[in-house]
């Protein structure tokens, strides 16, 4: 199956948008889910102009994970969803959010993400062409670091869920793709001081688009060079990690 129907969740984020553009240029049809309908409509128009064979929009509130099965149902109006990119997230709050804030934060970053993965797997299982679940995780999910452990924890839960879902639905043709972009110049990181080493959202997004188009599975660092520092971080003893500033 060459032309696929791809659902992008969190489609107004810069990285997801560039990934979607890459997929649109390949002529795939797209369904976009995101918070703001007005912005989604602009993104959809852009993707149609860039070659998407079809593009629909589905407003979605990540605080309401119970609406996720409906998104899949609506997005699959004309044809079943064959691939999904889960890209919505909220950055680490600058101060402790309190108990209700924490629940809300985990609901957006973790609960809704895992619900998306599960709904996607259920939707795609047994399709003739199989399915791909791409999950935009983070190097922050590798270890708990002092500056972003809460964000990292919400993402790490998603990583484990993705791995498990990949195993559970393997025989039904569902593949999983774990993406770990390094620091990128996006609004998501607007609160931080950008460094020269930061990647452009276009570079990161286009690579994700290429990986999805090629139906790659497994774990990918973007840019690839992040693999080395990430591997060092992954195996660093806790006594040393806890002394790392930043």
């Amino acid at each position: 199956m060459n032309q696929r129907h791809i659902l992008v969740i969190g489609a107004t984020s810069a990285i997801a948008e560039w990934a979607a553009r890459r997929l649109a240029a390949r002529g795939h049809s797209l369904a976009l889910a995101g918070r703001d309908r007005e912005r989604l409509e602009d993104v959809a128009a852009d993707l149609r102009n860039r070659g998407a064979s079809h593009c629909s929009v589905h407003p979605f509130n990540a605080e309401r994970p119970d609406t996720i099965p409906d998104i899949f149902e609506n997005a699959a109006g004309r044809r079943p969803v064959t691939d999904v990119l889960i890209a919505h997230a909220v950055p680490q709050p600058s101060s402790w959010p309190g108990e209700p804030g924490l629940q809300r934060y985990i609901r957006v970053n973790t609960t809704s993400a895992i619900a998306c993965m599960h709904a996607a797997a259920e939707h795609m299982a047994g399709h003739p062409g199989g399915g791909l679940i791409a999950w935009l995780s983070s190097p922050a999910a590798l270890r708990g670091r002092r500056k972003n452990w809460l964000y990292g924890a919400t993402k790490a839960a998603g990583d484990i869920a993705l791995e498990g879902i990949g195993g559970q639905y393997r025989e039904q043709g569902v593949r999983t793709l774990l993406l770990r972009p390094g620091p990128t110049r996006t609004a998501f990181n607007a609160g931080l001081e950008p460094a020269a080493s930061w990647a452009e959202p276009q570079t990161v997004g286009e690579r994700i688009g290429d990986l999805m188009h090629a139906r790659k599975g497994g774990e990918h660092f973007i840019p690839r060079a992040w693999w080395l520092p990430a591997t060092i971080l992954r195996h660093m003893p806790t006594w040393l990690l806890s002394r790392l500033k930043g």
């Binding site: 810069a14 602009d42 993104v43 128009a45 852009d46 102009n49 860039r50 609004a187 959202p201």
Partner: peptide, 9 residues
Amino acid sequence: RAANRILEL
């Protein structure tokens, strides 16, 4: 730069 959509062609 991030406002970069092609709205109508």
